[in-house]
Computed example of a mutant assay.
Amino acid sequence: MADAFKNLINPALVRACGEHLQRRWRDFDRRGFERLALRGLADLEMKARAMQIADALEATLPEDFDRAAGLIESALAPAATGDSLDFRSTETGLAGWIGWPLGEFLARRGQAEPERGLRALHALTQRFTGEFAIRPYLVNHFDLTLRTLSGWTGDRSAHVRRLVSEGSRPRLPWGLQIKALITDPTPTLPLLRALQDDGSEYVRRSVANHLNDIAKDHPGVVADWLETHLPDATPERRALLKHASRTLVKKGDGRVLAAWGLGAPFRGEATLAITPRRVAVGGAVALQLTLVSTSAKPQLLAIDYVVHHVKANGSTSPKVFKGWQLTLAPRETRALAKTHSLKPITTRVYYPGEHRVDVQANGKVVASASFVLRR
């Protein structure tokens, strides 16, 4: 059985951290640090482990933040040179998952000296990532942090350039939400413009995810972006913008579909069959869609399906799933098939009842059917 993800933060990592810090500062209380960091560690989940180690760092590193940040910087392994990170601490210094508690320390203690804290995060993100640790700086020192990020858009390290986009995402998963940017995303748009044609796919992928975050609250901003930046785009930029459009394409946003040439309504007939008609939780249903074109011209279609999941109170909640993107020839009949799993997952509880499935082509429902879910 695979080792639990939380065990990426483990006693060996704590001891390596203590060893490297003591190498840089002879008087570092390594024994006290390890005692505090390791207490009950095995019983803690991953985030709680990182926070406990950060507590131990706060208790044992110097009170002077500039000195403490300098010790952390001196204990780091050499900076990563490519797009990938090694995620391992070695005899050369600290890197990988120990960066989470190190970043948490810099986030906590650096608010009183934000310029020094941001400089330390510039170093840390080249060994792990500073995307979580930089978010309190955006909350508490918004203008300073944005100016700093703007200066980093031309940094030679792809990891620093990625931090510009990833660290300022309004809704970063696992990260503190930046409510000011959820309300108004325009302050980060110059950063994204500077990075959308970056030479690193690693950076461009982050820009796409940032734009997709914005799409959840301000679809018009992303539609404007596509109308401005999609014409004459390079293949690399088109790939970025396609990934950035994924939420709005699923939602059938008219302007976004039109930007991708998917705005025209489907001309033809569609039928959906679902088998089996009754299925238990943990099973699967087969979706069989037949499209019959009545158009004399080819049709570019983005086809998704919406499952209306039954909730505990008997109402339903729609969830869009990716289907197909295709060109339907004039008068063509096309059969499409997909299996939809009903295995329990951590983010969804299944309840018995009739589940309607709608198929939408270019954002408009063209066929529907249903199945009955039982325990």
Results as ranks from 00 to 15, higher is better:
D27F: 06
F5C: 05
A48N: 09
F28M: 07
E45A: 04
V207M: 00
Y305A: 09
L301S: 02
I345R: 10
D64F: 00
T183N: 09
V357Y: 03
L241F: 06
S157H: 07
T347N: 07
H308P: 02
D217F: 07
A68S: 15
R147L: 10
E19T: 14
A79S: 08
A258F: 04
T81F: 01
R26L: 13
D86W: 01
T186H: 11
A367E: 12
T183I: 10
P114C: 02
F87W: 07
R204C: 09
L289H: 08
D29F: 03
S206L: 05
P114L: 04
K322T: 15
L21T: 10
M1D: 06
R356C: 05
T271N: 14
K242H: 13
D143W: 02
L176E: 12
I303D: 05
F142V: 03
L144Q: 03
W324I: 04
K319S: 11
D3C: 04
G151M: 02
S168E: 04
A361E: 08
A208P: 14
K47T: 07
L289G: 10
G117E: 04
A133T: 03
A259L: 14
L149H: 04
R356P: 15
L191Y: 05
N209A: 06
P11C: 05
S370W: 03
S74N: 02
G103H: 01
L195N: 02
L76Q: 06
V281A: 12
E236V: 08
N313V: 04
G32H: 05
T316Y: 00
S293W: 11
N140R: 14
T153V: 10
E45Q: 09
P101Y: 10
K319V: 11
H309W: 10
R169V: 11
A77P: 11
A56T: 08
A16W: 09
G199T: 08
F142L: 08
